[in-house]
């Protein structure tokens, strides 16, 4: 399995905006960060080496952290898509297999 490259994350963010029908230019910067242009501007970058988090997200100068890509996606969408309401996964109680 390939390691997670910043290029793959860039592609994920680009495709995510398209999937959510959100306009925005996604750039990969020279210092290995992802920049989503517009208002507000969002910057996503790997967290510092000693951090317990994996990602740092900066929105209009305010920094947040994320432990994996899922909260990164959630935070980006919450910022850019005001009408967004996350559907939490529910695990069916009924069994898949008949006994």
């Amino acid at each position: 399995m390939n390691c997670l490259s910043i290029g793959l994350v860039h592609e994920l963010i680009t495709q995510s905006l398209a999937a959510w029908h959100i306009d925005g230019v996604v750039e990969l910067t020279n210092d290995r960060a992802i920049l989503i242009g517009g208002k507000p501007e969002i910057r996503i970058e790997p967290a510092q080496a000693r951090s317990m988090f994996r990602w740092t997200i900066t929105v209009d100068g305010r920094t947040r952290h994320a432990i994996s890509l899922l909260p990164v996606l959630r935070q980006v969408r919450e910022v850019l898509d005001p009408g967004y309401q996350a559907s939490r996964v529910r695990v069916a109680i009924s069994p898949l297999v008949r006994s």
Partner: peptide, 26 residues
């Protein structure tokens, strides 16, 4: 209205991140 490209890259990215964490990579 779900884009296949997004689903593909989502799975790739999640698998790669999990592999990184399992391997102790940043």
């Amino acid at each position: 209205r779900i884009r296949r490209q997004w689903v593909e890259v989502l799975l790739d990215a999640i698998c790669a991140e999990v592999a990184d964490v399992s391997a102790g990579n940043r």
